[in-house]
Design a binder for these strands. Structure first.
Lengths: 190, 190, 190, 190
DNA sequence: TATGAATGAGCCTTCATTCAT
DNA sequence: TATGAATGAAGGCTCATTCAT
């Protein structure tokens, strides 16, 4: 891509996520994306090689943004539980605020569009979280079982909580977050 | 006159799920489905009105099968924890064994193909589980918080465990199941 | 065709004409015809080799019926004008009463479905009329110009009168017929 | 940006009429039309929403062209008969020269393709002719009967004459036209 | 760079026709 | 004989992509 006009590119990415969240990735056409982004269809080819490239770029941007969101500094002197809660809240915030991007990613992941390159890109996250978990296990605050269990449950907890909030099953408040996080914490603590 | 071939229909349903799991629902064509089912493309129209009808029928069948799988009797005299573990294992078994159908359902749910009728169809599940949860709350064994939290976390636990097993992150053994379930149980017990 | 069941065959012919008149020959399917005739689609192949054969047979039957309708004896001792009026009325009657068949014929004639054989079949009509015209010319009652002019105008007169009646532009009564025929007569008389 | 090519549109319209006249409207495919027009099939969709829209647009163009052809000024000071002959000749000319378009219109009219909009479009013609007829009736030159009879016969006369010429039954010459028109005139004059 | 026109590939769907009972 | 099932061929239409301005 030739990022001549960065704003136009942003518009395309945003439009793609929005449409994917609204109408679904299924049958989403370049024409729709272009119209939603306010440009001509063939202009897309100035920025992306083809549809697959466009989707993968959108994915990579969304992923990077998510990482930036999670990755902010967390006071290493704070107690483990506080730090875990901190990450948990950040992830929840991200999934709620950047819903379009998250929706796009979830639909895109596992689709035939996904490049091997993009697949690799996925793995590199959560290092900050892993750090905390390792420390928590050393201090015997968290269950001393393979990290995968803890990480997976942690993510699952965030995912399900987001789902409930978005479905209206529960409202997003400090209380409900406290309850939901308590489940998560009870699961992973030793 | 040649009677309608029930086996052919089953083959179509199975093929649809298989292809959806392998290549994704995105861009899955009737041609591919028909070839995978070993019939001519136009033969599909003997059994289904159109593509949407086909997908929705596959969905309904998968859902019904899942319900049958979960819905078996569970000894009501057994302790709560045992019963919860029982359901947890059944769901895990189902998701592992009927992975194609589950994968199809997860992709189909929320897609533009989904009929309102099919959407309604979805709601009626999990009553057996809710029964157990209610009893567990009465006995103060489970957290006395809105059921949605517990159910959602429970489902999330199964989902994530399936994911880990299928991804090869962990193997499917009694030990790993015990560990994974312990996380779930610690989360929901009071 | 194997006319095992003559009634069934008649039903097919009638159904074909009816559907052609109602919905048009364009896109008329064997399925529709069969359903309208109250038989299974593939049963048509017991009576006709294929769709083209069916249409041509229907055409030939309609044509034959029309000829029978026109061809009744006309008192040769009656005055020319009376005999011409007689034929004119008969043709008008036919086009009004057997509208389905006539509609089918007009749509079929010139269509790609029409066999050379059927095309030849067409020519042989109107001999009774030609007889009268010839006599009228000998007696110098009709214009002594090539018969084609007279015949063509005569047919055109019937056709247009039918059109007007069916369109509701005029009603079918003795008076209106008298007026319409007068035009025809004035045109062809010497 | 490439501008829409008006010539391409004309080619499509002409090709459609030609094919309809040659092979019949029945079963005329977009592929045939496109090939005859020298463009790709999908290019048709740049100019028309779908097949129905294409046909209706062709119809409207043909109709408009016909009206332009008829509608030229006719010296109002000329005698009625001369003016009627004038119109008669113009219509005959049009039907002979623009045979493709006329053939298309006749097949299209009453077909299932015809839009209500196009149907309305049809009614507005022949006002010039009606004017002359009315004047002829006032002067008691034409039969004082409802105009529909006269108009219908007039049209029928042109139609049949065209048919004869095209079929080779008669040749197109001043003499044959004189004969044919005489029939028409005798029919409608008082 | 930006974009509407142009198009080939491919999909869903229909339908005449054959198969099998 | 009669018919529903099965299907290949073909048509209308969409869309990602290229062309030309």
């Amino acid at each position: 891509m030739k990022p001549k006009d960065e704003k136009k590119l942003d518009a395309v990415v945003a439009a793609t996520c929005r449409m994917a969240a609204e109408r679904g990735l299924l049958g989403l056409t370049l024409g729709e994306i272009a119209k939603a982004a306010g440009i001509g269809t063939s202009t897309l080819y100035v920025y992306f090689a083809d549809k697959v490239a466009l989707f993968n770029e959108v994915y990579r941007r969304a992923k990077r943004e998510a990482m930036d969101f999670y990755g902010g500094e967390i006071d290493p002197s704070a107690p483990i539980k506080s730090r875990v809660r901190n990450v948990w809240n950040r992830m929840l915030d991200h999934r709620l605020r950047q819903h379009d991007a998250v929706s796009f990613m979830e639909q895109f992941t596992g689709s035939a569009y996904m490049t091997e390159e993009s697949r690799d890109f996925t793995a590199k996250i959560g290092e900050g979280l892993l750090q905390i978990v390792a420390e928590g296990q050393q201090q015997e605050i968290l269950k001393t079982i393979p990290v995968a269990y803890l990480a997976s449950f942690f993510i699952g907890s965030v995912r399900e909580t987001t789902r409930m909030i978005r479905a209206g099953t529960i409202t997003d408040s400090e209380e409900s977050r406290a309850v939901a996080f308590q489940l998560c914490w009870d699961a992973i603590r030793s």
